[in-house]
Simulated assay, not measured.
Amino acid sequence: MNATDYFSGFLLGLSLIFAIGSQNAFVLKQGLKREHIFFICLFCAVSDALLISAGVAGFGAVTTRYPQVVHLAKLAGVTFLLGYGLLSLYASITASHALTTNGQVVTSLKKALLLCFGFTWLNPHVYLDTLVLVGMVSTGASSKLIFTGGAVSASFFFFFALGYGARLLTPLFAKPKAWNILDAMVGILMWYLAWHLYQS
């Protein structure tokens, strides 16, 4: 096993998803609510794995040749972020919920996965990072397979650590006010990301 290629892929993959974005904020919130954590983390990690594999395989050349694909994803992403941001801001004003640990599920698995799909696949930065950037960097690896394995394992590590590590904040979110603040922060973050995406 080429350790250099593996850790190069791992560190690159980790650096690209470490910043708090819309997808990470959603995973964090699901982790705090303890709703479908495993499936949400698995969906995000597998999605990353597919995109990274496609990027290393050369799909980045397709997005470079047909930039309209990225443009369409950008418009869809802005619309999605604005809509979810509005819902979060509305919830910060009207909702009154404390964190419960009695196993009650508020959001259905289907709805949670659909939201996760939007945050993941309607984000053009995901395509730029995985298909283009990872694909370009992988050309310098002596073993693309090992490099890909490193980048993919970084996604699995990060998302599961974020989802299950969120429960450490449970005492804080036992208070309804903390949820209102979180909803407001998520809403503002979504709108900021939508504006930033529109300007990019």
Rank of each mutant, 00 (worst) to 15 (best):
A3K: 09
C41R: 02
Y66F: 15
S200Q: 13
Q68F: 14
T4E: 13
S108W: 06
T107R: 09
M136I: 14
H196S: 15
S143W: 05
G60P: 10
T101M: 12
L89P: 07
F7L: 15
V78R: 01
G58P: 04
P124S: 04
A3S: 12
A166M: 00
I93A: 13
K177P: 00
M1N: 13
L162H: 02
F157S: 14
R34D: 08
S15I: 04
G77T: 07
A95P: 03
Y84W: 06
S8N: 13
L122S: 05
A154H: 03
G83K: 01
V27N: 01
S88C: 15
A166N: 04
L32A: 06
S153D: 07
F173S: 05
L182A: 10
A112K: 03
S153R: 01
V137S: 11
I40W: 02
T130D: 04
K175T: 01
V78M: 11
V69T: 13
V132W: 03
W191D: 04
F26N: 02
M136W: 11
A45E: 11
L114I: 14
K29C: 03
L75I: 13
H196K: 14
N123L: 09
G163R: 06
L11N: 10
G103R: 08
I93E: 00
G9S: 12
L51M: 15
Y164E: 00
F59W: 13
L28Q: 05
G163E: 01
I188F: 08
W179H: 09
F147E: 06
S22P: 14
H125W: 12
K111D: 15
L182C: 10
C44Q: 12
G103C: 13
L72Q: 08
V126G: 12
L42N: 08
F59N: 09
M190P: 02
I40N: 05
V27D: 03
L50A: 15
K144R: 14
H97W: 12
F147M: 03
V137N: 08
A184I: 07
G103Y: 12
V106H: 14
W195R: 02
V56T: 08
C116P: 00
F7N: 00
V134G: 01
I52H: 10
